[in-house]
Design a protein around this nucleic acid. Structure first.
Length: 206
DNA sequence: TAGGCCATCTGGTCCT
DNA sequence: AGGACCAGATGGCCTA
């Protein structure tokens, strides 16, 4: 489980923070869309996201309207020029806090949003890798290919398929021939050709 | 325990 | 201006 923190500054005067325990296996994809759209829709009022969406995403989460530096774990506070932490409990404290937070909250909000977009982007890249893994030949007992191995094997596989096409031979007999005699047109092959042809031998060609 | 792989955060740059 | 893309840094997990 990982501690996470979301903080917001909607209209420059209101500030609230959210944090809770997040399961590492949390399925982001669908939730991210909701999160981003709710962030966009958020106004000075308590948003649907804060009261409902968060709780559905993070069952044991806490939602508070509070001063970030007091309650949020690990949150850093940037003080405005000439300011220092104040212990006065007057109304000025509220203004002081608001001004202090305003100075850095917009950046943090943008950064959180950018982080989420980046995570979403990486998810789409990873799903593409998963799809690619399904299209490259692997041994039944082989462990999951890494990203770099997936790319290299895919390159070698495409090259070999091109060779098969150019040769006009029966694919299976071409692979058998490669197994026996080695792959003749191997150039700059990062992926070991015998590995590739051995993988291809597992393919049911008919 | 070192090295490989991966997810995430972050700041910079480019593009729309 | 905001989002997409990218690469570097960092830390966690797993395996030899």
């Amino acid at each position: 489980m990982e501690d996470i923190l979301f903080d917001f500054d909607h209209d420059g005067s209101t500030d609230f923070a959210f944090w809770g325990q997040m399961d590492q296996n949390f399925q982001f994809q669908s939730q991210l869309d909701t999160f981003l759209s709710d962030c966009t829709a958020a106004t000075g009022q308590l948003s649907p996201w804060s009261s409902f969406g968060c709780q559905s995403m993070f069952p044991d989460a806490q939602l508070t309207f509070t001063d970030l530096d007091v309650q949020s774990p690990g949150a850093s506070v940037i003080y405005a020029e000439g300011e220092s932490p104040c212990v006065d409990e007057s109304l000025d404290v509220t203004k002081h806090r608001a001004r202090r937070i305003v100075s850095h909250q917009p950046y943090k909000v943008q950064r959180h949003a950018a982080n989420i977009r980046e995570r979403k982007r990486m998810l789409s890249i990873n799903s593409a890798f998963e799809e690619l893994r399904c299209h490259v030949p692997t041994f039944p007992y082989e462990k999951r290919l890494s990203k770099i191995d997936t790319l290299r094997l895919a390159i070698a596989y495409i090259a070999l398929l091109r060779e098969i096409l150019m040769s006009g031979c029966d694919p299976k007999s071409y692979v058998d021939e490669c197994m026996k005699n080695g792959y003749k047109n191997q150039t700059n092959a990062i992926w070991n050709t015998s590995d590739l042809t051995a993988r291809l031998s597992w393919i049911k060609w008919d």
